[in-house]
Nucleic acid binder design. Structure first.
Lengths: 246, 246
DNA sequence: TCATATAACTCATATATATATTATATATCT
DNA sequence: AGATATATAATATATATATGAGTTATATGA
């Protein structure tokens, strides 16, 4: 061991690689490093922070395990974009049980600007009776409706989303990120089950009282700010979630 | 870089640390290293396999990430025991929604030796009409029944489990591992939802047609041998599974 | 006997260095 | 202009070494 003192504020008992880790984490969370950005190279960071290359490497490796960064040999290290393929949604194996994922086409029967219901305002940490963009969508596999999505967006954060001129693709986040330039950073999902009420049963063409899987999602933009709350209801008979215990 | 050639069969293009990793993985899977065992130290492995300490460390770190090993500074590296606290079962938050997990007491109304149903024999990769120990259990929170468990054990692998003299504690695996000395290595779980039939509704004291969460589990002993199949049905209103997407 | 110091062994942290692999930009030659 | 070689920069692999910190057994001394 040689070299001088690191040029980042350390903490007693806290390993140096974790200090570097936290430094990078802050850069990401604050938005100084945005999703998709190329971060400085190992050697640049090592010089800048005055720590060894190995320490920087370890810090970055840990953040790669956390899926906050990803690396390409020869190119560099990038800040991860959120990947909605990791949503619990993927366990809706609509269609053939043969394995290959089936494309779900979505329609948007309802889109309007409205006053947010109290529970929704609360979840979005928005003032009471805030304006919301309410969007209702139905997902189809072929001609068969398989799921219903209801989402509330904090209107102040997504100006123009309510306009009919803005086309909504199957993955709604594409509009928000690419067109409205609002970064989506992470989301929390909660999975439960319930039975179909009359309206849902009719839309999904199932019996009243049929089992449904319910997915609640709270989506966040930068600085830990909630931006969307969503409830997805799907037929339980085509949902199965698999894990392994070790 | 110095030193001689590694004394484990390598492969072209395959990094050395992965060779070491696979070596350890084989030792574990084959049962030569059993759950709870202390594995050789870094330096021992390095000498034995004729690779550097850093390479061994990296291999072990990867296996720690996979939860196949765990380390204690000053003590050594151990083979992980299966942890049923990782079961999806933990998302049954029976009782207070206040956070602290509630103890579920279990009773065993049915325990018998019987011929395995065809689907179960198939799942357990056992011959048609094999003998099974069938156990049915009901879980209570206080006086309230909250779940029903049905399990089939391959009788040949758990001799004596059917005997009424063997007391079954809340976590059944304790008997199998500690008393019968049969190692439990891993398990696969599949989560789905359905509605209560008459029998289940009566036992769980819910309405006919009430939503249920269903957890299917296939448990394995050493050498990838299935040993138990289990179906747990619980009230959906007290199940919620939370994840984060990044 | 009991407490304490010590030695030996473990993994953890931190650095340095050499070489390989992958990707990209630049210069060169036809 | 277009193909080809070359240089440069990034991560990946592999090793070596020094020091720190937690654990355990052993020796030591009152």
């Amino acid at each position: 061991m040689e070299t001088g003192t690191p040029s980042i504020p350390s903490a007693p008992g806290k390993p140096l690689y974790r200090v570097v880790e936290d430094y990078l984490r802050r850069e990401i969370d604050s938005g100084k490093l945005a999703p998709g950005d190329l971060i400085p190279s190992e050697s640049e960071l090592a010089t800048e922070l005055n720590v060894s290359g190995g320490t920087v490497k370890k810090a970055i490796e840990n953040l790669v395990w956390e899926r906050r960064l990803y690396r390409h040999q020869g190119k560099g290290t990038y800040v991860s974009r959120i990947d909605f393929n990791n949503s619990l949604f993927r366990f809706f194996s609509y269609g053939t049980h043969s394995g290959n994922p089936v494309r779900i086409h979505k329609e948007t029967p309802v889109r309007k600007l409205c006053e947010g219901p109290p529970e929704i305002c609360q979840k979005l940490q928005a003032p009471h009776q805030s304006q919301m963009v309410y969007i209702e969508r139905v997902g189809y596999r072929g001609e068969t409706p398989v799921l219903i999505e209801k989402c509330w967006w904090a209107a102040a954060l997504v100006p123009g989303l309510e306009s009919e001129e803005v086309h909504i693709p199957d993955l709604m986040y594409a509009v928000v990120v690419d067109q409205l330039k609002v970064p989506i950073v992470r989301a929390e999902e909660i999975l439960t089950a319930e039975i179909a009420d009359q309206t849902t049963a009719t839309t999904l063409k199932v019996d009243l009282g049929a089992p449904l899987v319910v997915l609640n999602r709270l989506t966040y933009t930068q600085k830990n700010r909630p931006i969307e709350f969503r409830i997805t209801r799907g037929r339980a008979d085509s949902f199965s979630y698999r894990t392994e215990i070790r």
